[in-house]
C-alpha cells in the first residue's frame, strides 16, 4: 500500500515540473531528424548503381532503432535528474517526512521512472518509425510496419528505454551532485562509450569485453543499431542477455547509491 502511495507521489513529482516534456520534445525532434535523415541518405544510396550497402529488407529496423541508439540518453537524464533534484532542492526533507521508510521512496521512484522510461520509448519509436517509414515509403521501400519482427523490435526497444531510465535513477543515487551526474551522462554516452566500443571492436579479446558495455548491451537487446553496423556487429549478446546487463547495471548502481547517499543524514 505504501509503495503504491509512494509511486503516485513520484509520478506527480515527475509530471508537475516542465523537465519531462522538455526532454521528450527534444528527444522526439532529435530522433525524428536522425531517422528521417538517414532513411533519405541510405534510400538514396541504395537506388544508385554499384553501391548497395544494405538490402531494402535490412533498412527499416536500422532506421527505426534510432529511437534507442540516439534516444537512450533522454531517459537516463530523466532518471538521474529525478534523483539529483531531490538533493539539489533539499526536497528529500519533506519526502522523507511524508515517507520515513527511505527504501519505499526509492522503490516508488524507481517504478515511476521505469514507467516514464517506457513512455519515452513509445514517443521515441513514434518519432523514428513515423519519420523513417514516411521517408522509406517515399523511396518505394517497404517500411515493414506489418511485420511481426518489427513489433517484437518495438517491444524490446520500449524495454530498453525503461531500463535506461532505471540506470539513470541508479546513477543519480550514486552521484547526487546534479552537475556531476549530467556531465557523466553526457560524457559517457556521447563520447566515452562510442570510443570504447570502437576501440574494443579492434581485437577479439577486447570485443568479448566490449559487448558488455551498456550501449552495446542495449543494441543487443534492441537487435539493430547504427553502431553495430559500423563496427561489424560480429560479437553481440543475446537480446535477453543485453536486458540483463542493463538491469544489473541499474540494480548495482541503485544499491550502492542507497547505502552511500540515500540513507545518509539529511541536513
Amino acid at each position: 500500500m505504501n509503495i503504491v502511495a509512494s509511486l503516485r507521489s513520484e509520478i506527480t513529482k515527475l509530471t508537475s515540473t516542465r523537465l519531462w516534456w522538455v526532454l521528450a520534445v527534444i528527444m522526439v525532434g532529435y530522433v525524428a531528424l536522425c531517422a528521417g535523415g538517414l532513411a533519405a541518405i541510405l534510400s538514396g544510396v541504395g537506388t544508385q548503381a554499384g553501391a548497395p550497402v544494405l538490402s531494402d529488407a535490412q533498412l527499416p529496423p536500422l532506421i527505426y532503432s534510432f529511437a534507442t541508439s540516439v534516444g537512450y540518453v533522454f531517459p537516463v537524464l530523466l532518471g538521474a535528474l529525478a534523483v539529483t533534484s531531490e538533493f539539489r532542492f533539499q526536497s528529500l526533507t519533506p519526502t522523507f517526512l511524508a515517507t520515513p521508510r527511505r527504501g519505499t521512496v526509492l522503490a516508488g521512484k524507481m517504478t515511476a521512472l521505469v514507467l516514464a522510461g517506457a513512455m519515452f520509448g513509445v514517443l521515441a519509436l513514434v518519432a523514428s518509425m513515423g519519420a523513417g517509414a514516411a521517408v522509406l515509403g517515399a523511396f518505394g521501400i517497404d517500411p515493414q510496419l506489418g511485420s511481426p519482427d518489427t513489433w517484437a523490435f518495438v517491444g524490446r526497444s520500449i524495454l530498453a528505454m525503461a531500463l535506461w531510465a532505471a540506470i539513470g535513477v541508479g546513477l543519480g543515487a550514486l552521484v547526487p551532485s546534479q552537475i556531476a551526474a549530467i556531465v557523466i551522462v553526457l560524457a559517457f554516452t556521447q563520447f566515452l562509450e562510442p570510443l570504447l566500443r570502437f576501440g574494443a571492436s579492434i581485437t577479439d579479446w577486447s570485443a568479448a569485453i566490449g559487448k558488455f558495455l551498456p550501449g552495446a548491451a542495449s543494441d543487443a537487446l534492441v537487435g539493430s543499431s547504427i553502431f553495430t553496423l559500423t563496427s561489424g556487429g560480429g560479437t553481440q549478446l543475446e537480446w535477453w542477455q543485453g536486458a540483463l546487463v542493463l538491469a544489473a547495471i541499474a540494480a548495482v548502481a541503485t544499491a550502492i547509491g542507497y547505502f552511500t547517499s540515500w540513507r545518509r543524514d539529511v541536513s
Binding site: 506527480t12 508537475s16 532542492f89 519526502t95 511524508a98
Partner: peptide, 16 residues
C-alpha cells in the same frame, strides 16, 4: 522544487 506549483508541491506529499 522551484518549478513546481505550491498546490502540486503539497499534492506530492499528500499522496505519499
Amino acid at each position: 522544487h522551484p518549478g513546481r506549483s505550491a498546490r502540486n508541491h503539497l499534492a506530492v506529499y499528500a499522496q505519499a
